[in-house]
């Protein structure tokens, strides 16, 4: 099952397209990281998936084909927006009561014990909690709803390192215990490397790269070799990003393990951050990859739903 499926999805504000030609299929049971600089369209994509915004082009379905914003979608998705909006003058207990009343499922016991473990007093007004505590409260409310999909928009922007660790640990534990799928966005990749097993790279409103992290890392290599030969090989190889010195050049290429390494060159595996930076520095890089339609249609949703790249 694909927790989020978008086809040609686009959203326009006035004359600006915040998101354009977005075609992705995020499989269930993963932690999908939406990565990109500010203004890349991450929040727009998440808002569309959560049903808070309507598409200007294309469509988006969630939880195995249900329309975004439909009753089933609202029931199965717990969304925590950026800056964790909260009713400032309601106490934590009131927020629990509120969430319980607005949903079909709510695990009051879990929520209260979790807040107790985190040291968040139930009587205190939400506005008086620290940024980290508010984020944890918002997460508690979301997890207590027992959703199928947890969507987090830059959830850790306000958190210090310890709070970030605790936050992520809670999310991962929910995933381990209940099989919740997670889609989260961030503009800091380093903190996602430990947790993400599906990556969507976005830049300027378009998806540059999407796929399972393992597949992406296996299909990219860094070739190091003489600068003089770099141009020659650049035409034959699928080069994402090139860095040259006087004598030595580094080419980050998209290959499979079977592709031969040019003689005299060394091939190194690529880390996630390096890969992401290379693509983000080359906005046209995604266009060089095979089109999404064929790859996407080949991967039927009933299979793993995985795909190795998306572009255009």
């Amino acid at each position: 099952m694909n927790v989020i499926e978008a086809s040609g999805l686009g959203r326009r504000y006035g004359s600006t397209w915040a998101l354009r030609d977005c075609t992705v299929a995020i499989p269930a049971g993963h932690v999908a990281a939406l990565v990109g600089p500010n203004g890349a369209g991450k929040t727009t994509l998440l808002n569309l998936a959560a049903g808070l915004a309507a598409p200007s082009a294309g469509d988006v379905t969630v939880l195995g084909g249900r329309p975004a914003g439909s009753p089933m979608a609202l029931d199965g998705i717990a969304f925590v927006a950026q800056d964790t909006p909260m009713y400032k003058n309601l106490s934590a207990r009131d927020m629990l009561h509120l969430t319980r009343n607005l949903n079909r499922r709510f695990d009051q016991q879990y929520a209260e014990s979790r807040l107790g473990e985190l040291g968040i007093p139930l009587k205190r007004k939400a506005g008086k909690l620290s940024g980290g505590q508010q984020a944890q409260l918002a997460l508690t409310l979301a997890l207590a709803r027992r959703p199928r999909l947890l969507v987090l928009d830059e959830p850790m922007a306000m958190l210090d390192p310890v709070a970030r660790h605790d936050f992520m640990a809670s999310v991962m534990m929910a995933m381990a215990a209940d099989g919740v799928s997670v889609v989260l966005s961030s503009h800091v990749l380093a903190e996602l490397e430990r947790v993400a097993d599906y990556l969507i790279l976005m830049s300027r409103g378009r998806v540059q790269l999407a796929g399972e992290v393992d597949d992406l890392l296996a299909s990219h290599h860094l070739l190091t070799g003489p600068a003089a030969e770099a141009d020659r090989y650049a035409e034959r190889l699928n080069v994402v990003h090139a860095r040259r010195g006087e004598a030595q050049a580094h080419l980050l290429v998209r290959t499979t393990a079977d592709d031969p390494v040019p003689p005299g060159w060394e091939a190194h595996p690529v880390g996630l951050e390096e890969l992401a930076l290379a693509y983000l520095r080359e906005p046209a890089a995604a266009a060089a990859l095979p089109g999404p339609d064929r790859a996407w249609r080949r991967a039927l949703p009933s299979e793993t739903g995985r795909q190795t790249e998306v572009s255009k």
Partner: peptide, 27 residues
């Protein structure tokens, strides 16, 4: 699973009963 008193998963059928109106009274 961790939750004892709540159903684990929503119904699979497309017609989901809406959350009762009176819940909004307290809200």
């Amino acid at each position: 699973m961790t939750a004892l008193s709540v159903p684990a998963r929503p119904e699979e059928d497309a017609s989901l009963r809406p959350v009762p109106w009176q819940r909004m009274g307290w809200v």
